[in-house]
Amino acid sequence: MAGIHPSALIDPKAELDSSVAVGPYAVIGPHVKIGAGTTVGPHVVIDGHTTIGRDNQFFQFSSIGAAPQDKKYAGEPTRLEIGDRNTIREFCTFNIGTAQDAGVTRIGSDNWIMAYVHIAHDCQLGDQIILANNATLAGHVQLDDWVFLGGFTTIHQFCHIGAHAMTAFTAAVSQDVPPFVTAAGNRAAPVGINAEGLKRRGFSSTQIAAIRRAYKLLYKSGLSLEEAKSALEKEQASAVESSAHIGLLRSFLDGATRGIIR
Protein backbone atom coordinates (compact mmCIF):
# COMPACT_ATOMS: atom_id res chain seq x y z
CA MET A 1 0.00 0.00 0.00
CA ALA A 2 2.05 2.92 -1.31
CA GLY A 3 -0.33 5.45 0.29
CA ILE A 4 0.36 4.33 3.87
CA HIS A 5 2.78 6.56 5.77
CA PRO A 6 5.42 4.52 7.62
CA SER A 7 4.54 6.16 10.94
CA ALA A 8 0.87 5.10 10.76
CA LEU A 9 -0.17 2.30 13.15
CA ILE A 10 -2.57 -0.09 11.40
CA ASP A 11 -3.65 -3.29 13.09
CA PRO A 12 -2.93 -6.34 10.88
CA LYS A 13 -6.58 -7.40 11.20
CA ALA A 14 -7.91 -4.12 9.76
CA GLU A 15 -9.27 -4.37 6.20
CA LEU A 16 -8.19 -1.51 3.95
CA ASP A 17 -8.62 -1.35 0.20
CA SER A 18 -5.28 -1.10 -1.60
CA SER A 19 -6.14 2.45 -2.76
CA VAL A 20 -6.69 3.82 0.76
CA ALA A 21 -4.23 6.57 1.80
CA VAL A 22 -3.24 6.93 5.46
CA GLY A 23 -1.29 9.91 6.78
CA PRO A 24 1.42 10.21 9.43
CA TYR A 25 0.69 8.95 12.95
CA ALA A 26 -2.82 7.79 12.15
CA VAL A 27 -4.07 4.82 14.20
CA ILE A 28 -6.46 2.21 12.78
CA GLY A 29 -7.87 -0.58 14.96
CA PRO A 30 -8.43 -4.29 14.26
CA HIS A 31 -12.16 -4.17 13.50
CA VAL A 32 -12.02 -1.36 10.94
CA LYS A 33 -12.93 -1.76 7.27
CA ILE A 34 -12.21 1.08 4.79
CA GLY A 35 -13.32 1.20 1.16
CA ALA A 36 -11.54 2.30 -1.99
CA GLY A 37 -10.34 5.85 -2.49
CA THR A 38 -10.73 6.94 1.13
CA THR A 39 -8.09 9.23 2.63
CA VAL A 40 -7.25 9.17 6.34
CA GLY A 41 -5.37 12.29 7.43
CA PRO A 42 -2.55 12.71 9.95
CA HIS A 43 -3.24 11.77 13.57
CA VAL A 44 -6.74 10.44 12.81
CA VAL A 45 -7.79 7.57 15.11
CA ILE A 46 -10.30 5.03 13.73
CA ASP A 47 -11.31 2.34 16.17
CA GLY A 48 -14.22 0.09 17.14
CA HIS A 49 -16.29 -2.01 14.77
CA THR A 50 -16.24 0.67 12.10
CA THR A 51 -17.08 0.25 8.42
CA ILE A 52 -16.27 3.11 6.03
CA GLY A 53 -17.25 3.26 2.36
CA ARG A 54 -15.59 4.71 -0.73
CA ASP A 55 -13.97 8.08 -1.40
CA ASN A 56 -14.31 9.59 2.05
CA GLN A 57 -11.84 12.19 3.29
CA PHE A 58 -10.92 12.41 6.97
CA PHE A 59 -8.92 15.49 7.93
CA GLN A 60 -6.40 15.52 10.75
CA PHE A 61 -7.08 14.80 14.44
CA SER A 62 -10.55 13.24 14.16
CA SER A 63 -11.64 10.41 16.50
CA ILE A 64 -13.84 7.91 14.66
CA GLY A 65 -15.50 4.83 16.18
CA ALA A 66 -14.55 5.32 19.83
CA ALA A 67 -16.68 4.01 22.68
CA PRO A 68 -19.88 5.99 23.35
CA GLN A 69 -20.03 8.58 26.10
CA ASP A 70 -22.67 6.53 27.91
CA LYS A 71 -22.20 5.07 31.40
CA LYS A 72 -24.33 2.06 30.42
CA TYR A 73 -21.87 1.01 27.75
CA ALA A 74 -20.13 -2.21 28.85
CA GLY A 75 -17.89 -2.96 25.90
CA GLU A 76 -20.51 -4.52 23.61
CA PRO A 77 -19.38 -4.92 19.95
CA THR A 78 -21.62 -2.15 18.67
CA ARG A 79 -20.87 -0.44 15.37
CA LEU A 80 -20.30 2.71 13.34
CA GLU A 81 -21.18 2.68 9.64
CA ILE A 82 -20.16 5.49 7.27
CA GLY A 83 -21.19 5.63 3.60
CA ASP A 84 -19.42 7.11 0.57
CA ARG A 85 -17.97 10.48 -0.46
CA ASN A 86 -18.21 12.15 2.92
CA THR A 87 -15.91 15.00 3.94
CA ILE A 88 -15.01 14.98 7.64
CA ARG A 89 -13.00 17.97 8.77
CA GLU A 90 -10.67 18.45 11.72
CA PHE A 91 -11.31 17.26 15.31
CA CYS A 92 -14.62 15.49 14.65
CA THR A 93 -15.79 12.77 17.04
CA PHE A 94 -18.12 9.97 15.91
CA ASN A 95 -19.06 7.24 18.43
CA ILE A 96 -20.28 3.69 17.96
CA GLY A 97 -23.79 2.69 19.03
CA THR A 98 -25.10 1.16 22.24
CA ALA A 99 -26.87 -2.08 23.08
CA GLN A 100 -29.81 -0.05 24.41
CA ASP A 101 -30.66 1.07 20.85
CA ALA A 102 -30.05 -0.45 17.41
CA GLY A 103 -26.40 -0.93 18.30
CA VAL A 104 -25.15 1.15 15.38
CA THR A 105 -24.43 4.77 14.56
CA ARG A 106 -25.00 5.41 10.84
CA ILE A 107 -23.78 8.23 8.61
CA GLY A 108 -24.93 8.16 4.99
CA SER A 109 -23.22 9.47 1.87
CA ASP A 110 -22.24 12.82 0.35
CA ASN A 111 -22.26 14.64 3.67
CA TRP A 112 -20.13 17.70 4.48
CA ILE A 113 -19.15 17.64 8.15
CA MET A 114 -17.10 20.58 9.38
CA ALA A 115 -14.60 20.90 12.23
CA TYR A 116 -15.34 19.87 15.82
CA VAL A 117 -18.66 18.19 15.02
CA HIS A 118 -19.74 15.55 17.56
CA ILE A 119 -22.02 12.69 16.49
CA ALA A 120 -22.94 10.64 19.54
CA HIS A 121 -23.98 7.01 19.87
CA ASP A 122 -26.90 5.62 17.89
CA CYS A 123 -27.39 8.71 15.71
CA GLN A 124 -28.82 8.06 12.25
CA LEU A 125 -27.80 10.48 9.48
CA GLY A 126 -29.02 10.44 5.88
CA ASP A 127 -27.36 11.87 2.76
CA GLN A 128 -26.39 15.34 1.51
CA ILE A 129 -26.26 16.79 5.04
CA ILE A 130 -24.18 19.82 6.04
CA LEU A 131 -23.06 20.18 9.66
CA ALA A 132 -21.28 23.46 10.30
CA ASN A 133 -18.47 23.88 12.84
CA ASN A 134 -19.16 22.63 16.39
CA ALA A 135 -22.60 21.21 15.66
CA THR A 136 -23.28 18.70 18.45
CA LEU A 137 -25.64 15.74 18.27
CA ALA A 138 -26.58 13.93 21.48
CA GLY A 139 -27.38 10.24 21.40
CA HIS A 140 -30.18 8.72 19.29
CA VAL A 141 -30.63 11.81 17.08
CA GLN A 142 -31.97 11.33 13.53
CA LEU A 143 -31.14 13.71 10.67
CA ASP A 144 -32.93 13.13 7.38
CA ASP A 145 -31.52 13.96 3.93
CA TRP A 146 -30.46 17.51 3.06
CA VAL A 147 -30.49 18.82 6.64
CA PHE A 148 -28.31 21.86 7.32
CA LEU A 149 -27.20 22.59 10.90
CA GLY A 150 -25.65 26.00 11.55
CA GLY A 151 -22.51 26.43 13.62
CA PHE A 152 -22.73 25.58 17.34
CA THR A 153 -26.18 24.01 16.92
CA THR A 154 -26.96 21.57 19.74
CA ILE A 155 -29.50 18.76 19.34
CA HIS A 156 -31.09 17.07 22.37
CA GLN A 157 -31.09 13.27 22.49
CA PHE A 158 -33.83 11.43 20.57
CA CYS A 159 -34.70 14.49 18.45
CA HIS A 160 -35.60 14.06 14.79
CA ILE A 161 -34.73 16.71 12.20
CA GLY A 162 -36.76 16.37 8.99
CA ALA A 163 -35.53 16.52 5.41
CA HIS A 164 -34.48 19.94 4.09
CA ALA A 165 -34.76 21.51 7.56
CA MET A 166 -32.23 24.08 8.69
CA THR A 167 -31.02 25.50 12.00
CA ALA A 168 -29.50 28.91 12.57
CA PHE A 169 -26.22 29.62 14.33
CA THR A 170 -26.28 28.50 18.02
CA ALA A 171 -29.78 26.99 17.81
CA ALA A 172 -30.59 24.76 20.81
CA VAL A 173 -33.02 22.10 19.63
CA SER A 174 -34.97 20.11 22.22
CA GLN A 175 -37.93 18.95 20.09
CA ASP A 176 -38.40 17.57 16.58
CA VAL A 177 -37.98 19.96 13.64
CA PRO A 178 -40.37 19.18 10.75
CA PRO A 179 -39.17 18.95 7.13
CA PHE A 180 -38.48 22.24 5.30
CA VAL A 181 -38.58 24.31 8.53
CA THR A 182 -35.89 26.75 9.67
CA ALA A 183 -35.33 26.80 13.43
CA ALA A 184 -33.50 29.45 15.46
CA GLY A 185 -32.91 30.44 19.05
CA ASN A 186 -32.59 28.88 22.50
CA ARG A 187 -34.91 27.06 22.75
CA ALA A 188 -35.21 26.68 19.01
CA ALA A 189 -38.44 27.99 17.47
CA PRO A 190 -39.73 27.99 13.86
CA VAL A 191 -38.87 31.12 11.88
CA GLY A 192 -39.99 30.15 8.36
CA ILE A 193 -39.11 27.60 5.70
CA ASN A 194 -35.69 26.87 4.22
CA ALA A 195 -36.67 28.56 0.95
CA GLU A 196 -33.14 29.31 -0.25
CA GLY A 197 -32.07 25.72 0.28
CA LEU A 198 -35.09 24.46 -1.64
CA LYS A 199 -34.31 26.78 -4.55
CA ARG A 200 -30.75 25.48 -4.71
CA ARG A 201 -32.06 21.92 -4.87
CA GLY A 202 -34.33 22.63 -7.82
CA PHE A 203 -37.71 23.02 -6.14
CA SER A 204 -40.04 25.03 -8.38
CA SER A 205 -41.68 28.27 -7.26
CA THR A 206 -45.02 26.44 -7.20
CA GLN A 207 -43.63 23.74 -4.92
CA ILE A 208 -42.05 26.28 -2.58
CA ALA A 209 -45.29 28.25 -2.42
CA ALA A 210 -47.19 25.09 -1.46
CA ILE A 211 -44.64 24.28 1.25
CA ARG A 212 -44.96 27.84 2.55
CA ARG A 213 -48.74 27.45 2.72
CA ALA A 214 -48.30 24.22 4.63
CA TYR A 215 -45.95 25.98 7.06
CA LYS A 216 -48.53 28.71 7.65
CA LEU A 217 -51.22 26.12 8.34
CA LEU A 218 -48.96 24.50 10.91
CA TYR A 219 -47.58 27.61 12.57
CA LYS A 220 -49.50 30.77 11.63
CA SER A 221 -53.16 29.76 11.46
CA GLY A 222 -53.90 29.45 15.17
CA LEU A 223 -54.92 25.83 14.65
CA SER A 224 -54.12 23.10 17.15
CA LEU A 225 -51.70 20.45 15.94
CA GLU A 226 -54.51 18.00 15.23
CA GLU A 227 -56.50 20.66 13.37
CA ALA A 228 -53.40 21.56 11.37
CA LYS A 229 -52.93 17.91 10.40
CA SER A 230 -56.47 17.82 9.03
CA ALA A 231 -55.89 21.04 7.11
CA LEU A 232 -52.66 19.66 5.67
CA GLU A 233 -54.51 16.58 4.44
CA LYS A 234 -56.83 18.83 2.42
CA GLU A 235 -53.89 20.90 1.20
CA GLN A 236 -52.11 17.77 0.01
CA ALA A 237 -55.14 16.72 -2.03
CA SER A 238 -55.27 20.06 -3.84
CA ALA A 239 -51.54 20.76 -4.31
CA VAL A 240 -50.81 18.21 -7.02
CA GLU A 241 -47.24 19.28 -7.79
CA SER A 242 -46.32 19.33 -4.09
CA SER A 243 -48.42 16.42 -2.87
CA ALA A 244 -45.36 14.31 -2.05
CA HIS A 245 -43.74 17.14 -0.09
CA ILE A 246 -46.80 17.81 2.02
CA GLY A 247 -47.18 14.07 2.47
CA LEU A 248 -43.62 13.97 3.82
CA LEU A 249 -44.52 16.71 6.31
CA ARG A 250 -47.70 14.92 7.41
CA SER A 251 -45.85 11.63 7.88
CA PHE A 252 -43.23 13.37 9.99
CA LEU A 253 -45.86 14.96 12.22
CA ASP A 254 -47.56 11.60 12.76
CA GLY A 255 -44.27 10.04 13.84
CA ALA A 256 -42.94 12.84 16.06
CA THR A 257 -42.12 11.38 19.48
CA ARG A 258 -40.76 14.44 21.31
CA GLY A 259 -43.33 16.89 19.95
CA ILE A 260 -42.40 19.48 17.33
CA ILE A 261 -40.98 22.94 17.85
CA ARG A 262 -43.89 25.39 18.03
Results as ranks from 00 to 15, higher is better:
3 G>T: 07
8 A>V: 12
8 A>Q: 06
13 K>R: 15
17 D>Y: 07
19 S>F: 05
24 P>F: 07
25 Y>W: 15
26 A>F: 10
27 V>H: 11
29 G>E: 09
29 G>Q: 11
34 I>L: 12
39 T>L: 11
42 P>M: 11
54 R>P: 00
55 D>C: 09
58 F>T: 06
62 S>L: 06
65 G>I: 05
67 A>G: 06
74 A>G: 08
78 T>C: 14
80 L>Q: 04
81 E>G: 03
84 D>K: 02
85 R>D: 14
87 T>E: 07
88 I>T: 05
88 I>H: 03
90 E>S: 08
91 F>G: 00
91 F>R: 08
97 G>R: 03
99 A>Y: 01
100 Q>S: 13
100 Q>E: 13
109 S>I: 08
112 W>M: 12
117 V>S: 00
117 V>H: 02
120 A>R: 03
126 G>F: 00
129 I>A: 05
130 I>V: 14
143 L>A: 08
146 W>F: 15
146 W>N: 13
150 G>R: 02
151 G>D: 02
152 F>W: 04
155 I>N: 00
161 I>R: 00
167 T>R: 07
169 F>T: 10
173 V>K: 04
178 P>R: 06
184 A>Q: 12
186 N>T: 13
186 N>Y: 03
189 A>R: 15
190 P>D: 08
194 N>W: 03
196 E>G: 04
196 E>Y: 04
197 G>M: 12
198 L>F: 02
204 S>L: 11
206 T>D: 15
208 I>N: 05
209 A>D: 14
210 A>M: 11
214 A>V: 02
222 G>T: 09
222 G>D: 10
225 L>Y: 10
225 L>H: 10
229 K>Q: 15
230 S>F: 05
231 A>Q: 14
231 A>R: 14
238 S>K: 14
238 S>M: 07
239 A>Q: 15
240 V>T: 14
246 I>G: 06
251 S>G: 15
